[in-house]
Design a protein around this nucleic acid. Structure first.
Lengths: 338, 338
DNA sequence: TAGGGAAGTAAGAGCGCTCTCACGACGCAG
DNA sequence: CTGCGTCGTGAGAGCGCTCTTACTTCCCTA
């Protein structure tokens, strides 16, 4: 049984070459779009067509050392990942779009337990993927350092709180928060509180910074409660703020989900929004259009984060130099709550 | 330069064997957990440890014909996929859990344009993945047939509307809808309408069937409006139902998102829920807890769908016989709206 | 007309692994 | 003490591809 007729059913490059009457090397050139005589190009193409030849991915990877597979690593923590806000789905969508254009495939890895961390590291060490996108990792996460050690291109979606900092694509949390506060000031609000996010997450930290910056510029006092980005925590924080300072006339909430909770707490407390108290959220998730009243918020371009992460990673893999920090703009979306 | 010391930086099985003083075959046996002398097992293990050896995935795939990669194909249509309901994120999560346990990786493919269909088909034909999970495809989708032709294991998340029907994991839409209607009847409602989903989707069709079945059993008249699973369409349909039959006292809505729209329409129309009209949704998405009033609904086990799809696919790949149809139970969740 | 270069092609090595096959060592029964 | 089965091992083929090397062919210039 010679090579061309053997095999496990699927046609190989050898069988294509045999049928086209050329060498395997020439067939390979045609398949990979390199210059050959029009005559042989044509006969190879016909052979490919007739046999239904599709190159074997593993064989190609073995010699080129490319897998055309990029990993997207997401934390599995149920609080944030696949719950209410559409952050990860949006990022996935953006990444997927960009990779499709580059003809790469996306491997999704959910990092929950330390065991899955090991698994991810092993899988990447096995040269299973060409590059890695890391989303929303905790400050102490050992993954970035481990991946850097392996020597594989990495891009994050936020600046890392840990010691090593891979290139990242972030959003302008500070500027967005400041814009929100300035909008409140511009519309005549004077006692402006904030419900901040967790202070071990970039979003939580930076949005609070933006609030403080904008208030400091206006020489007003800051009034702060802290939530954990969940709806319930927003309601709790709102009640606490009302208790602390009943004369509040505005609140900037670091996420839409918490803002919805705050809205509910305000309704229960008999405060009218926006008449008595103005509320601004952050994220512009789908829910924001449907709260009562519809939520004024700071939009962050979620799909664009995914797209740019993928784009930066592709450039890194291609050996291009990239700017290690990329910050995407946020945008004030005025609805009815402020 | 001999083989053991050569290479592109990473240790190979040859270098491990050389260091352990055994043949490559023996080293391979240790790595793959086959029986060898304790002595050589130990020395190989030490060599693996010292060199930081990780098997090359492509090389292994080339000979075993396994990739340990499973694809999950989702339609990209922005209406449903990554919008408000958490269906796909939930399925992804469930699939991911199950695959992690089996030490497989997940390749996510978003099928939007016909071009991406081609790409998916090519990628699968290249033996790039061991099996495919298809979610929510349209009736006329050529993908199932194409994949069957290629001869790769396929599992869907719903019965297919097309001619070929791969094994699938579905939920008991008919039974769930009937349960909802019976709950309304049991609580004394007499004029029960429904807002159905699109009639070219399984969920839309089957939930309407369940509604009809339960009503027919009680010999009451059916009152039907049709939406497209979006919030706005729910509001529109609700207004239409109120116009058609102002004496309605209950409505079963085929999705929570549409139910939220219906709730808003009812509030605007000055109807109290549940006093004047009872509302039951379907899905039990996160939003259902936060509507006003909180939504009574039929829960479908979304993550479980993902888990079972993955489980069935793994069994198919392992060559086991599987039941081609698997139906997961739904459950009535009573909150305040009914 | 002869020589030099360019361009296309074939041959073959090798990517890192698994798996078959043949062999040697050992234990046991006859 | 011999013969047979068992078990672990090493050698080597081969998975399907790319890429280097060396060759052939052809065209252009001197």
């Amino acid at each position: 049984m010679n090579r061309a007729s053997a095999g496990r059913g699927r046609p190989t490059l050898d069988s294509v070459a045999a049928r086209a009457g050329v060498s395997r090397a020439t067939a390979s050139r045609v398949v990979n779009g390199m210059t050959v005589t029009p005559t042989s190009a044509e006969s190879v193409r016909r052979a490919v067509e007739e046999l239904g030849y599709v190159p074997n991915h593993a064989a190609r990877t073995l010699v080129t050392q490319r897998t055309d597979l990029l990993a997207l690593v997401l934390p599995e923590a149920t609080t944030r990942v696949f719950s209410d806000d559409q952050f990860f789905p949006g990022v996935i969508h953006g990444v997927s779009q960009q990779l499709e254009a580059a003809d790469k495939q996306l491997v999704l890895m959910l990092a929950g337990s330390p065991a899955s961390h090991d698994r991810i590291e092993r899988s990447i060490a096995a040269h299973h993927v060409d590059g890695v996108m890391l989303a929303s990792l905790h400050g102490a996460d050992p993954l970035p350092a481990a991946l850097t050690r392996i020597g594989i291109p990495v891009v994050c979606n936020e600046r890392s709180l840990g010691p090593t900092s891979p290139p990242y694509v972030g959003v302008d949390n500070v500027g967005g928060a400041a814009t929100a506060v300035r909008h409140l000031l511009d519309t005549g609000r004077t006692r402006i509180a904030t419900i901040a996010g967790p202070q071990d997450m970039i979003g939580g930290i930076d949005r609070l910074t933006g609030y403080r910056d904008a208030l400091r510029d206006s020489a007003r006092r800051s009034i702060i409660a802290v939530g954990d980005f969940t709806l319930d925590s927003g309601a709790v924080a709102m009640r606490q703020l009302l208790a602390d300072d009943p004369a509040l006339d505005a609140v900037f909430v670091a996420s839409d989900l918490m803002a919805d909770g705050a809205l509910q707490a305000l309704r229960q407390a008999g405060r009218r929004v926006p008449d008595d108290i103005a509320v601004i959220g952050f994220d512009d998730i789908a829910l924001a259009q449907y709260t009562d009243p519809p939520l004024t918020t700071i939009r962050q371009p979620i799909m664009e984060i995914g797209r740019q992460m993928a784009r930066q990673l592709l450039r890194l893999i291609a050996g291009e130099e990239i700017e290690p920090i990329m910050t995407l703009p946020t945008e004030l979306v005025v609805r009815r709550s402020a």
